[in-house]
Design a binder for these strands. Sequence first.
DNA 1: CTTACGGCCTGGGTGC
DNA 2: TGCACCCAGGCCGTAA
Length: 301
Amino acid sequence: MPELPEVETVVRGLREALPGRCIVSVRLGKTDFIDDPAALESDLPGNRITGVRRHGKFVVVELEARAGAAASACLLVHLGMTGQLTTGRADTPAAPHTHVFFALDDGQELRYTDIRRFGRMVLASEGLRERVLGPLGLDPVEAGERDFCERLRGRRARIKALLLDQRVFSGMGNIYTDESLWRARIHPKRIAASLKEAELARLYRAVGDILREAIRLRGSSVSDYVDAKGERGEYQMRHRVYQRNGRKCHRCGALIRRVIVAGRSSYFCPRCQPAPRGRKRVRRQRQLKIKKAPARMKKPA
DNA sequence: CTTACGGCCTGGGTGC
DNA sequence: TGCACCCAGGCCGTAA
């Protein structure tokens, strides 16, 4: 499951192979994850790659501005759950589920492999690029503490939902939100607005430290993830809660539990990350006594 | 507007 | 051996 550290690792690998290369030809297999497959085939050959960047969980392959073009285009790739971008010699056999082949001018080939095809690929003009990447939130690795906390303060949603929301922060997925919340000792169901300043600060530190450490270890390979050279990451060895249901908490020894939060499996330590106060009972009592809540002030338009 | 939730896409793994 | 089912992440529509 490529999240920020995995995508960052892929990008760093691609950066060693792609800049300066020219795309010679494009060959496509299944194309239902590509916005406009015909455009890839017709417009990409002849383009030179100038750089590779990460934006949230997107890989951005920068293309040289062509003569006469107002602005340079780029290839946006989202790896979804099982997407892989790898480079290697063009004459090596392709892995199963490889659906895009970009032949390069040095005999190498950039390939996109995706078992589930939950990924996305789009050749984007300046405007389209802005439409896709523009809504993405703060990069949690680059964010300062002030900006990070500002994004959460006062929000009434569960903290886990906000960490996963790519418009709030871009790059976090299920693994790193759970790991970060465990390290910060915050239950995934906590309402963001209920977090004390010390908890927000702890969360900021936890997120940054964990993502940086995961990048250092080249990401987590829990299922299919491999980097641009086809190698697995090592951060899965450091997971403290993710998919450790029923095993002992590294900090206190209590058994890790799994609950659904924000529609996602969420792993946490019930002792280190105390659940927020339930309100079911209170609400039921109130309903018996007070039939109707007082009408709220309605602001005139 | 904000938030919650269910459905959808696909196919590997699991359990019967 | 086969088969139904679950689940993954992102996105979208709907409802409160």
